[in-house]
Design a protein around this nucleic acid. Structure first.
Lengths: 152, 152
DNA sequence: ACTCTCCGTGGACGCCATCGACCTGAGCCT
DNA sequence: AGGCTCAGGTCGATGGCGTCCACGGAGAGT
């Protein structure tokens, strides 16, 4: 992970569809060199994948909610995790410090679907209680912050 | 937005670097047709961009926190938004229903940097109080949920 | 029925991805 | 010091891809 790798990561975070040739021009290497570096970044787990950033409302996911989960005393967090993982509406899942063990970001199409999700969560073994906060609007999300010395 | 567009969006959400030729094979159209469809999805705002998914710890962002902000009564939310927008550590910003007007997801390298961020937030005009919860680990994040009828 | 429009296909051409061979410099062993 | 080795780069070649263009068919409106 030298400065060139950081530049590559930065470039790919802002536009994952840049060609290797274009990346090469930006960092001042040849295309095969960039190809190899990016390959190593991928196989070492630094770059986990490439995602299109899609407007959620455009694909019928207009409701965003953040849900905190308090665990039963004695509940097994790993079991709970597996229960949460199978719910596709849960886009993100953080294990938190504090009373609420988990914080979920969920996206659904309608408030009715959100209600169903919350009911399902409360029925999940190990869940003592949930607390849901609805996002009225997403100002921005997953904004890549510049990394390392930006002026390469 | 027909079924083919949804398939394209789905494919690009799971791998944004797929070639047009490959996309074309998957959806049963020619490459130019796919190229045009994707171009329209981009210019209509459905596809907002393409991002590499990078392991945050690998680029020195090992600390994740979620911060709720309570506004002063009479504060201007738009002004506050602009104040928040210039803080690069804030990766996501939601305008919420509830006592806390904003919910931020921030990522920093160290707890000390988190402390500085919180201090800065509390000094920001319009901020009455903040509440910070630290994520001990990120189980998953921004998992794309399948959209539409998956069996195309 | 005619035509307009939308949306697709097929062909062409230049650029890109990717492989292999070779080069260079750093570090290390003798 | 000299030379081995290896990591990591450049260069050149080739096959596939991106992208532009002209053309064609289905469906709607008059």
């Amino acid at each position: 992970m030298d400065a060139i790798d950081l530049s590559l990561v930065d470039l790919l975070r802002s536009n994952a569809r840049l060609s290797y040739a274009e990346l090469a021009r930006q960092v001042g290497l040849s295309a095969p060199a960039v190809h190899e570096r990016v390959g190593k970044l991928e196989s070492s787990g630094v770059v986990r994948g490439y995602r299109a950033d899609v407007a959620p409302e455009a694909i019928g996911l207009g409701v965003t909610a953040l849900i905190g989960i308090v665990e039963d005393s004695g509940a097994d967090s790993d079991d709970m995790l597996e229960s949460l993982r199978v719910l596709p509406e849960i886009e993100s899942c953080y294990f938190m410090a504090g009373v609420e063990s988990f914080l979920l970001k969920a996206r659904v199409g309608t408030i009715a679907e959100l209600e169903q999700l919350i009911v399902r969560l409360n029925r999940t073994p190990g869940v003592a209680s949930t607390r849901t906060a609805i996002a009225l609007s997403t100002k921005w999300e997953n904004r890549p912050q510049p990394v390392g010395p930006p002026a390469a």
